[in-house]
């Protein structure tokens, strides 16, 4: 029972354990560290000092330099992403309630319909959306909505409303069916049951879905690349791309630009990360949490 020779001291073991994790964490942090310190380097310093060495005389020059070209795209992203993500998530939640009713009814037809719709919203969530490039651009162009907020919002809805419905379908299953059955027996209308019962009960799930949608919409690069051409309508991830000139021709402002583009999702991740994580986990486990 007493400690045997050859057994590693538990304190040493724990220290090695921590050390291994810390090594990986440090490696994982290198890019964000580089982004922050190099954003504060002057033009000359960026080209002459190693990327991993912090600036000897920090300056906010690069931020001032990129701000004029990034302020409008940042504003565009803010104006567009938050309402789009909210509407997509809310309308998606309403559909999730409908799917929930559908999958809890017993008819064979509705189970087929439910499987079909469920596959469809899953496809919309996971499809490489770039594959819809041509018809989507054509559709938006035909509606005369290229280079407009409406056109972008419409395109985002095609992918992120089903995502909202899929995630909320998963979160809604946590509500005991008996509660909703009781409400239906009390002759509640569907809208009332949703608004008074289902929505409040699945609010944490709704927030997770919303955060997930905000981050995904914000970081979407391809859709705004296709649907906007005028500089005034650019969204932030696409604008950041203009700071690379192709074939490793880099400008010193890339770091500042990347920082400005990342600040909103990163801020959300830092303060509301657990909701984002819960949203991701729901996609993979049907709502069982960490």
């Amino acid at each position: 029972m007493s400690s045997k020779p050859g057994r590693v001291n538990p304190t040493v073991k724990a220290a090695i354990h921590q050390l291994v994790i810390i090594i990986f964490v440090v490696i994982w942090l290198i890019p964000i560290y580089a982004m922050v310190i190099n954003g504060l380097k002057s033009n000359v310093a960026v080209y002459t000092t190693p990327v991993l060495i912090p600036p000897s005389s920090p300056t906010i020059e690069p931020f001032q330099a990129v701000w004029s070209s990034l302020s409008r795209p940042l504003l565009n992203s803010l104006i567009l992403v938050l309402p789009v993500a909210f509407i997509a998530t809310f309308l998606g939640s309403m559909a999730a309630y409908f799917f929930y009713m559908l999958s809890n009814s017993f008819s064979r037809v509705s189970s087929f319909v439910s499987n079909f719709l469920f596959s469809l919203i899953s496809l919309a969530t996971f499809i490489p959306y770039q594959a819809t490039l041509i018809p989507l651009t054509k559709l938006i162009a035909d509606m005369g909505l290229l280079n407009t907020y409406w056109g972008l919002a419409f395109a985002f809805f095609i992918f992120y409303m089903p995502t909202g419905a899929l995630l909320m379908s998963i979160f809604i299953t946590a509500i005991p069916p008996r509660i909703i059955e009781a409400a239906r027996l009390d002759r509640g209308s569907d809208w009332r049951i949703f608004y008074k019962l289902v929505f409040p009960l699945s609010l944490p799930g709704f927030i997770s879905t919303l955060i997930f949608n905000i981050i995904e919409t914000w970081n979407n690069f391809f859709i705004p690349l296709m649907l906007t051409t005028t500089p005034n309508m650019r969204l932030i991830p696409v604008t950041v791309q203009s700071f690379t000139g192709g074939y490793a021709t880099l400008y010193n402002e890339t770091f500042a630009a990347a920082f400005i583009a990342s600040m909103v999702p990163l801020g959300i991740f830092i303060f509301l990360g657990r909701y984002f994580i819960r949203g991701l986990i729901a996609l993979g486990t049907g709502g069982k949490g960490v």
Binding site: M1, S2, S3, K4, R7, P10
Partner: peptide, 16 residues
Amino acid sequence: ELVATSNKLVVPPEDR
């Protein structure tokens, strides 16, 4: 034989 004391595991479960 002391196996545990204030906030300290002297003998871990696998050796008990």
